[in-house]
Design a protein around this nucleic acid. Structure first.
Length: 492
RNA sequence: CGGGGUGUGGCGCAGUUGGUUAGCGUAUCUGGUUUGGGACCAGAUGGUCCUCCGUUCGAGUCGGAGUACCCCGACCA
């Protein structure tokens, strides 16, 4: 384990990459752009999955699974969609290998070429709509609300651990509805499921809003997003929910008979979050001592470190820790006693801080005699000695307090980095400092494009659920009239 | 795909104008002392210096080609 303190100032990317490795979340794999998620990192992802999945069930979502491979012809049915993804697809062309006739190793058998190439799914709209066609006949079959947890592949040019990898894990929900209103309501409902999850579980303050037409999902009529701010002031799109209109229904000819006996195309949505949430979590809360995990997600919520000189002392301390562990577990908390005999306490403190465990309890002979424990919080890095008696109820409330505190801290950081900006000159100066700039925009794609070219800033979203943005003004770039402010930022 | 950088024990690095037996930190192993914030002492293991070709009496060091990875862009969840 590295001893040096990490520093964020020099190179945030490097700092982040190092942290992912040091906290034992993931490592780089030998496969280009792909990542190995280690057990500790995966435990966090699993927890995200289980909590989100429970939320999905509450709004009528059913899980299903669809094929990894998509025939090329399916993929090209929706024109905008194919244009959006064509550049980053992995393609299967053969189905067999053979021994290299010229020597060692294996080569692709040229006789085993597929008649039609298969695309490794970058997203599953096309394969799912080809299936939904068979599932949908009558208005009685609607709505269909399916979700799948799976991996997808996008051959990105540049990758970063969790934020953008060539293969990543996610969930993708795909729904079919009888009316546009119902589909739009669903897309809206799901983006709020994500927003609540981000806020309450990840302790991540997010802005909910619409994407500008330029930033929309390929093939969508409207894209809703949750946007988070990282500690370097850059924006990160943490989840999206799309209203797809009838585009996919028409491309895949999915029609139903309504209660008047007429044929109608169905209306669609899709929505997803990915292992990028792991990146958001890390980048939003970590400090120079390592990860800071919100208790709601931490695989280990409380770690106990014994401090002892002799084996007798060790046994006595651990025996008392076992009692406390059982009490905490009865309250629904996950607890680990770090009884490794080969490491010194100081080392363990540093290691668990690196891994972001919210609460640490240290107990030595001093405590055993006095009936106390030392309780340390990861979020504030403070510690205090308290009576062992009844400590479990204190920890119970402390975990909630930590959860709230992490959110509040992230929220005040974000809010102090959101500012209004009303002149183009000011915009160019401010945007490089990071943060979200609330600006008026004339609503045209051309203006958005020019601003992007000149500053690299994009419209992260057109916020909903906030009255702050609703006001008359003039476009920051063209001076044309505007009815509301939108969020500009540099993003990941 | 453009621009920059780096390949030397498991990991992180040094290695001078080419010179003999390639060093240092860390990790690992052994023994002992330690243990309330990343322990210390002593000893030990561990290297085709990315690959190939070339220059030279002599290459980790110089030249060429290849290759891998990292960082910064463009593309994107």
């Amino acid at each position: 384990m590295a001893k040096e303190v990490t520093t964020r100032a020099e190179n945030y990317s490097q700092w982040y990459n190092d942290l992912v490795v040091k906290a034992d979340l993931a490592e780089q794999s030998a496969v280009r752009g792909c990542m190995v998620i280690k057990p500790y990192g995966y435990a966090i992802w699993e927890k995200m999955q289980s909590i989100l999945d429970a939320e999905f069930k509450k709004v009528g979502v059913h899980n299903a699974y669809f094929p990894l491979f998509i025939p090329k012809s399916f993929f090209s049915k929706e024109a905008e969609h194919v244009a959006g993804f064509a550049k980053e697809c992995a393609v299967v062309t053969h189905h067999r290998l053979m021994n290299d006739p010229n020597g060692k190793g294996v080569v692709v058998d040229p006789d085993a070429r597929l008649e039609e190439e298969l695309i490794v799914r970058p997203t599953s709209e096309t394969i799912i709509w080809s299936v939904y066609k068979n599932w949908i006949n009558s208005w009685r079959d609607l709505p269909i609300i399916c979700n799948q947890w799976c991996n997808v592949v996008r051959w990105e040019m540049r990758t970063r651990p969790f934020l953008r990898t060539a293969e990543f894990l996610w969930q993708e929900g795909h729904t079919a509805h009888a009316t546009a209103e119902e589909a739009e309501a669903k897309a809206n409902e799901m983006v709020h499921v994500y927003a609540d999850f981000a806020r309450n579980v990840l302790a991540l303050p997010v802005v909910v809003g619409h994407k500008s037409p330029n930033e929309r999902f390929a093939g969508a009529l409207d894209t809703l997003t949750i946007e988070a701010m990282m500690q370097d002031g850059k924006a990160l799109q943490a989840g999206t929910s799309h209203f797809l209109g009838q585009n996919f229904a028409k491309s895949f000819d999915v029609q139903y008979t309504n209660n008047e006996g007429k044929l109608e195309y169905v209306w669609a949505t899709s929505w997803g979050v990915s292992t990028r949430l792991m990146g958001a979590l890390i980048m939003a809360h970590s400090d120079d001592n390592g990860l800071v995990l919100p208790p709601a997600l931490a695989p280990i919520q409380t770690v106990m470190v014994p401090i002892y000189k002799s084996q007798e002392d060790r046994a006595a301390i651990i025996a008392r820790m076992e009692v406390l562990k059982a009490k905490l577990e009865a309250l629904g908390h996950s607890v680990k006693i770090d009884d490794r005999d080969t490491l010194r306490p100081g080392f363990k403190f540093a290691e668990w801080e690196l891994k972001g465990v919210p609460v640490r309890i240290a107990m030595g002979m001093r405590d055993l005699e006095a009936g106390t424990v030392e309780v340390a919080r990861r979020d504030t890095l403070t510690k205090e000695t308290m009576a062992l008696e009844g400590i479990e109820s204190h920890i119970h409330t402390l975990l909630d307090e930590i959860q709230t505190n992490i959110y509040t801290k992230a929220l005040s950081f974000r809010d102090s980095n959101i500012r209004k900006c009303d002149s183009w000159e000011e915009f160019k100066q401010e945007i490089v400092k990071g943060g979200f700039l609330l600006c008026h925009w004339d609503g045209t794609a051309e203006t958005e494009e020019k601003i992007k070219e000149e500053t690299k800033a994009t419209i992260r979203c057109i916020p909903i659920d906030t009255a702050v943005c609703e006001e008359e003004g003039k476009c920051i770039y063209t001076g044309k009239p505007s009815h509301r402010r939108v969020i500009f930022a540099i993003s990941y």
